[in-house]
């Protein structure tokens, strides 16, 4: 499937688990934007050209929890929206970010890893800098926020 350049004016949706949302101010915690060494620096997201916040969240339910082997519960995730141009313009030495289209397609579809035309990745070093983690959250906003606030 061909990858397409994502224009700066578009947006991407990132999932934020409810465990990564502050109970004080209902904003993402800085811990939300740091991956494991295994996963590396890329942050998965969905391009709003091919998805909505609701469809992005619903797709979570078709993915499998790696530990239990059971489908993930979409109710345990909220959706955060980033403007692509704003993320690309983050001016941090050594922390430049790029967002690339990275569609997922398998035929036949793999159980637990659904095809996703909207899938994209936010590429770039994110960890090891507390200032960057705080300020990355500043550049986005809730598309589907916590319902308990």
């Amino acid at each position: 499937m061909k990858e397409i350049f994502i224009p700066n004016e578009d947006h991407v949706f990132c999932r934020i688990g409810i465990d990564f949302i502050s109970s004080k101010d209902y904003k993402p915690r800085a811990s939300a934007f740091r991956n494991t060494p295994v996963k590396g620096n890329n942050l998965s997201c969905d391009w709003d050209k091919y998805s909505t916040a609701e469809s992005s969240r619903a797709l979570i339910g078709r993915q499998l929890n790696l530990r239990t082997g059971k489908p993930k519960d979409p109710r345990k995730f909220c959706i955060y929206k980033f403007n692509v141009g704003t993320v690309r313009s983050i001016n941090f030495p050594g922390k430049g970010q790029e967002i690339e289209h990275d569609p997922i397609y398998n035929d036949p579809e793999i159980e637990g890893k659904p095809n996703n035309l909207a899938h994209s990745v936010m590429i770039g070093e994110k960890g090891d800098d507390e200032e960057f983690r705080i300020k990355l959250a500043d550049t986005g906003c809730w598309a589907i926020g916590p319902s308990w606030k």
């Binding site: 990564f20 502050s22 109970s23 904003k27 915690r29 800085a30 811990s31 740091r34 991956n35 494991t36």
Partner: peptide, 20 residues
């Protein structure tokens, strides 16, 4: 807040009306 992080580290995170 005392928050676990995916990579096995821990954050102490303050956010007040004055600063963070």
């Amino acid at each position: 807040e005392i928050n676990p992080v995916r990579d096995g580290s821990i954050d102490l995170e303050w956010r007040t009306s004055k600063g963070r």
